[in-house]
Design a protein around this nucleic acid. Structure first.
Length: 436
RNA sequence: GGAGAGGUGGCUGAGUGGUUUAAGGCGCACGCCUGGAAAGCGUGAGUGGGCUAAUACCCCACCGGGGGUUCGAAUCCCCCCCUCUCCGCCA
């Protein structure tokens, strides 16, 4: 959520920044300001009347103590009408404030000044590229063929269990998935200074609002229900990313400055309903309803936010480098950035079998946008409470990493060579087709 | 799911309608005292909102959350949430 004071005092700047996203959010600002104006007017009058009433009530107490009942009764009648007026003003102020909050929750974050202005993914600048596509000596197979010939994923039975968009990993495939998760968790905890946490995979609405998933993207989530009790529907949601629980760990807390920076890494499955989205239902593992991900979360002092973002991208890149994968880092332009983010880098892997780049990581600094929503603060050296920057990044997403690993390291004979750092985790240096 | 107990400031712990401006204690910060410390004494310190140039005054609200009664609610009434204990069910 934006700071209402910034909206009030620098409305033109806020509108200009929002306009760069190209979604028309700036149009709601004037309405927010009008509601804010009314709220403060009602509140001001109500508070003046409350001060009057407080003083009068004290006098009534004193009169009662002096047994001056008649005088006390007279004062009571007088104060009663003030109370009625206060009730009306309070109700109006609360109503207007509620409307203002609803609108504020729908406003996305302001892009940082360093973010390229653009309309869509086509305007995203490529920041750097690592490695290169392997020299082609044979026609690379797609991961679907490889998964089937190596018996890593049973697409048909996955769909039989849960419908399209769900995967059944089998044998070495299941083992490879687990090995990748553990490899990434170990690297981030041992070498990158992250603390591992294992969060709930169902979270409350509060958590979803806190990170900015709700209320705007409510239709994208899977909602859980307890048994047949319809009234419980909407209390818990399957996590779309570990960001939802992990970024909220310290919600509504005031952290001592000495505790920052906080760096968490968590594995979780991610559930995406993707209602109405194109692509689910296409063959393969590129776009699915459930995938695994190792997520990085940082809670840092504002002055450290952008240095920590660069470091986080580096942490994710390190995974890909160690696995010998060809990737590029792109900066999302204003029109392509997520709702809560002020600045985002995506990392895309080259998938030879697809002949395309696949996004496996998105690292964002949300600045204090989420911290405001979840009321997370820290006490600085001067004793003032401040909102920290909250960052999130995939380190990395699994299904597409799995795809790219297979397609990149496939050999002419149909086997897949396992990169050296992964071998101790997987327990083999090569995946070979099973003998019939 | 059943029964019971509870939720008050950083912690502890009083408070069942009006000098509570939330007592007392512990802890914290600063000062006095001291050669230095401890003890002792003194002072200060919460969160949000409004008004502001102000993180200065002043005002309003906040005792798990939300309603209600009242001139006045931590206190009385209603609803909800959470925690703990025991029982049941369960991996």
């Amino acid at each position: 959520m934006l700071d209402i004071k910034i909206v009030r005092e620098r409305a033109d700047f806020v509108k200009e920044r929002l306009a760069t996203r190209g979604a028309g959010d700036e149009r709601a600002i004037d309405e927010i300001l009008a509601l804010d104006e009314v709220r403060r007017a009602r509140l001001g009058e109500a508070e003046r009347l409350k001060a009057q009433r407080n003083a009068a009530s004290k006098e009534i107490g004193a009169l009662m103590a002096q047994k001056k009942a008649a005088e006390a009764e007279a004062r009571k009648a007088e104060v009663r009408s003030i109370g009625d007026r206060i009730a009306v003003l309070d109700r109006e102020a609360a109503e207007v404030e509620g409307k203002r909050e609803q609108l504020m929750l729908q406003i996305p974050n302001l892009p940082d000044a360093s973010v390229a202005v653009g309309k869509s993914a086509e305007d995203n600048p490529v920041i750097r590229t690592w490695g290169r596509a392997a020299a082609v000596e044979f026609t690379p197979k797609s991961h679907v063929e490889l998964c089937e010939s190596l018996r890593l994923v049973d697409f048909a039975r996955g769909a039989k269990l849960s419908g399209s968009g769900f995967l059944l990993y089998t044998g070495w495939g299941a083992r490879l998935e687990r090995a990748l998760i553990q490899f990434m968790l170990d690297l981030h905890t041992r070498e990158h200074g992250f603390t591992e946490v294992s969060p709930p995979f169902l979270v409350s609405e509060h958590c979803m609002v806190g990170v900015g998933q709700f209320p705007k993207f409510r239709d994208q989530a899977y909602a859980a229900r307890e048994g047949l009790d319809d009234s419980s529907l909407g209390k818990l949601f399957l996590v779309p990313t570990a960001e939802a629980p992990v970024a909220n760990i310290h919600r509504e807390e005031i952290l001592p400055e000495s505790q920052l920076p906080i760096r968490y890494v968590a594995y979780s499955p991610c559930f995406r309903a993707e209602a109405g989205a194109a692509g689910v239902g296409t063959r393969g593992m590129i776009r699915v309803h459930q995938f695994d991900k190792v997520e990085l979360i940082k809670i840092v002092k504002p002055e450290d936010g952008y240095a920590e973002l660069e470091a986080m991208v580096g942490n994710a890149e390190r995974i890909l480098q160690m696995l010998g994968l060809h990737y590029r880092v792109i900066g999302l332009c204003t029109g392509d950035m997520g709702f809560a983010s002020a600045k985002t880098y995506d990392i895309e892997l080259w998938a030879p079998g697809q002949g395309s780049w696949l996004e496996v990581s998105s690292c964002s600094n949300c600045e204090d946008f989420q911290a405001r929503r979840m009321n997370l603060r820290y006490k600085d050296a001067e004793g003032h409470n401040r909102f920290p920057h909250i960052l999130n990044g995939s380190g990395t997403a699994l299904a597409r990493l799995f795809v790219t690993l297979l397609e990149t390291h496939q050999q002419a004979d149909g086997s897949v060579l396992i990169p050296e750092p992964l071998r101790p985790y997987l327990g083999t240096d090569r995946l070979v087709p099973p003998t019939p």
